[in-house]
Design a protein around this nucleic acid. Sequence first.
DNA 1: CACGTTAGTGAACAGTGAGTCTGGAAACGT
DNA 2: ACGTTTCCAGACTCACTGTTCACTAACGTG
Lengths: 220, 220
Amino acid sequence: MKPAQDRRVRRSRRALRQALVDLVLEKGFQPITVEEITARADVARATFYAHYRDKDDLLVGIVRDLAEDRERLLPAVVQAQTRGFTGLPVRYIFEHAEQERDVYRVILRGEGDGRALREFTAIICDRVEQVFRERAEEHGATPRVPLDVVARAWTGELVGVLTWWVEADTGYSATEITTHLRDLSVYGRVWASGLAPADVPGAFDAPTAPVAGGAGSRET
Amino acid sequence: MKPAQDRRVRRSRRALRQALVDLVLEKGFQPITVEEITARADVARATFYAHYRDKDDLLVGIVRDLAEDRERLLPAVVQAQTRGFTGLPVRYIFEHAEQERDVYRVILRGEGDGRALREFTAIICDRVEQVFRERAEEHGATPRVPLDVVARAWTGELVGVLTWWVEADTGYSATEITTHLRDLSVYGRVWASGLAPADVPGAFDAPTAPVAGGAGSRET
DNA sequence: CACGTTAGTGAACAGTGAGTCTGGAAACGT
DNA sequence: ACGTTTCCAGACTCACTGTTCACTAACGTG
């Protein structure tokens, strides 16, 4: 399903996808009918079924398109920038989300049956964990918190902030948000909120020992 | 809609909610019909519409029930435990999720039209931000990262990890997960993964500048 | 425990959207 | 200019939705 040489096919699919994105932003995914989509796309209803099984199938197609687009442009960006504080080009993701804001909104809202969002999250989480492992190995570091937990946490943070950022008018630029996330990553939430560890109940203990029972505690 | 004195009402609603949860875990939300729900609940179809507008309405009802339940039991827990490292009884949330695992799964999967999950997230996020503000004020601290960003990030982290935890068999207990999240909060992700700040591109600047001046902007 | 009230029942109803199928017209790549 | 592929318009079945109604059963209360 990649070449799609015929111009008519390209036209029809593009129109249908755009129509769905528009409609979702207008009224949410669920109440949309196939007929509405085809009407908006100016395409016969029978044509829809020639390309997609149903609404959800169309949505999944959109997610894949987006991921493809992101991956396609990525190598060039990675050349130009450093790989970033977690090894993922975080700022690039925010910039991409800025460009394709409508599509990101549709996905991050969890429209449809939720598959789209789950797939999106999974793509990010897998890469994050992989990068954390590589980097830990590279520096011979012993994780103090299991890396699967770290990866999930960081993915949740990224997706959560991204969702909020594309949805609300936060007033922060992509660069600002990225900087904040970097600070949170490196220095922790307590520092970020302006407190000292001693201000926080439960934080009196020295940092817990490394998971695998390695080196002792470090300065905070 | 809170007292529901009549026993018949309680019975019907409980049966319907339980039926929906079961069915969602079996086959996902979308393909479920109202008739299936009522059949499973052993209730007439007309009765369903006497209580709920549609499937989604029923799902939202479940979310509210859950939040109510959580809040109801909370005060007792707060007496017994410290308020936790972010002011929210994080461990209690994980314990509650352990008890009500099925319901948490249904919600966190983002089933339905997504309202359920959005509402769940919103409830948490509001409280988190409120707590952060209170605590900052209490200690006269100046946030180094805007508190709305911190709140979103922490909520995303919590919800992300919670989702993973109730879904997969992670092998971590509620207490362990809570400890890890505390460490991440207090000491940051870089420390948690066993690295030193100097190992991480973009983390060379000392963390000094408060929000107003913008933290040192560095490439990511 | 008998009362009036309220909820549940089962069946029927019209309406809507899903998904499939047709033959003929139009656009395509070569 | 040609054979092939896609698009179109409409018709059709079917399943599910959401509402209604008269009847019956269960309820809380005094």
